[in-house]
């Protein structure tokens, strides 16, 4: 019984207590890859611990159930309780009901996961296909343009995947900013970020109300955006990425020369929500937080320490279920 309890306790702690802590470590996107690794490792760890816990529980039930039912039976019925009573019907019913409940819950979760990811894949492919057929190819970019006054740029996986720009986006972006946007979207596709999003969204749909998976899905999506921002910054420079974010976000053209980026940081950064750790993770501030991140100057020592902590966390989380299963018994 002890390994099962330890594993379940651990799974619950990781699922409910860890997300706020992990969000603090990964929220600013200091080390995007290690941040992603930590979140995914935490999810895998909780699922694995729960799985091992169930396995261990069934083992215990099979081994100890007769004495357990006998004790319960005797305390209720006294001497009237004979082996004939506690060995047959109760045993079968008890084990059967328990197994049925757990299996039903697992089946529902798996079914929800499957439905969500399958629909996500189908809808995405249909969207990509329709965009490639109905859109106008933008020469030399591999992207297609759809007529809409609202500035938007996005990619969608499919066979093949599509990068879509609206005419509104082309109206507010200059050449360099457009290149940054395209680099951002290509990074999503080549990094297979959509697969991460699909899987984590599926888990969130399978286990609704469990913070590790609901918040985790949002944090993984945020980290994927930051990772793509980094790729765009490598290709086009941070000021251009900032200008492109502001142009699409505010729906106005933002000439890079108009941004006095060199002088800004202190006064601007204090205004952005990114500085407050609590507000940072709020989905509503995703874009200002990305601007803040692009403008922030790196702090090598602190960043390296944070990266190290995330790496240790990712490894510890991955190892924990096996360690618990081996030593708690």
């Amino acid at each position: 019984m002890r390994p099962a309890l330890a594993l379940f306790g651990y799974a619950l702690a990781v699922s409910w207590s860890l997300p706020p802590l992990l969000a603090r470590l990964t929220g600013r996107g200091v080390s995007v890859r290690l941040g992603l690794a930590a979140w995914l490792s935490a999810m895998a760890s909780a699922l694995m611990a729960a799985g091992l816990g169930i396995q261990s529980l069934f083992g215990t039930v099979r081994a100890d159930w007769p004495s357990l039912t006998r004790a319960v039976c005797r305390s209720v019925a006294g001497d009237a309780c004979t082996p004939v009573v506690y060995r047959s019907a109760l045993y079968e019913l008890g084990v059967g009901a328990c197994a049925l409940l757990v299996s039903a819950a697992a089946v529902v979760a798996v079914w929800r996961y499957g439905r969500r990811t399958r629909r996500g894949r189908t809808r995405s492919r249909a969207h990509a296909r329709a965009a490639l057929l109905a859109g106008t190819p933008l020469p030399g970019t591999g992207a297609v343009v759809l007529p809409d006054p609202r500035p938007a740029a996005y990619c969608v996986p499919g066979r093949p995947a599509a990068i879509v720009l609206t005419t509104g986006a082309l109206n507010v972006l200059d050449g360099a900013q457009l290149a940054a946007v395209l680099a951002h979207e290509r990074a999503h596709l080549s990094g297979r970020h959509h697969a991460l999003v699909l899987v984590t969204r599926g888990l969130a749909a399978a286990l609704p109300g469990v913070p590790l998976f609901t918040r985790g899905a949002a944090e993984v999506a945020r980290l994927a955006e930051m990772s793509a921002d980094d790729a765009a910054a490598r290709a086009s420079g941070r000021p251009t990425v900032v200008a492109a974010l502001l142009a699409i976000g505010t729906r106005t053209a933002v000439p890079a020369s108009a941004l006095a980026l060199a002088r800004v940081p202190s006064s601007l950064l204090s205004m952005l929500p990114g500085r407050a750790d609590a507000g940072l993770a709020a989905a509503g501030y995703a874009v200002p937080a990305r601007v803040e991140r692009m403008l922030r100057s790196p702090r090598p020592v602190r960043d390296a320490a944070l990266g190290f902590a995330l790496a240790v966390a990712a490894i510890a989380l991955a190892a924990m279920p096996v360690v618990l299963a081996a030593f708690a018994g």
């Binding site: 249909a126 938007a152 996005y154 990619c155 969608v156 502001l246 505010t250 933002v254 006095a260 874009v287």
Partner: peptide, 29 residues
């Protein structure tokens, strides 16, 4: 349910306001 990765996701009014303020600060020094 389609997995669309927007360069800039749909924003609520508050976030748009914050972003507009950022732009004003950056543009106006």
């Amino acid at each position: 349910e389609a997995v669309l990765s927007h360069f800039v996701a749909q924003m609520d009014g508050e976030e748009s306001a914050v972003l507009g303020e950022v732009l004003r600060k950056l543009a106006g020094g």
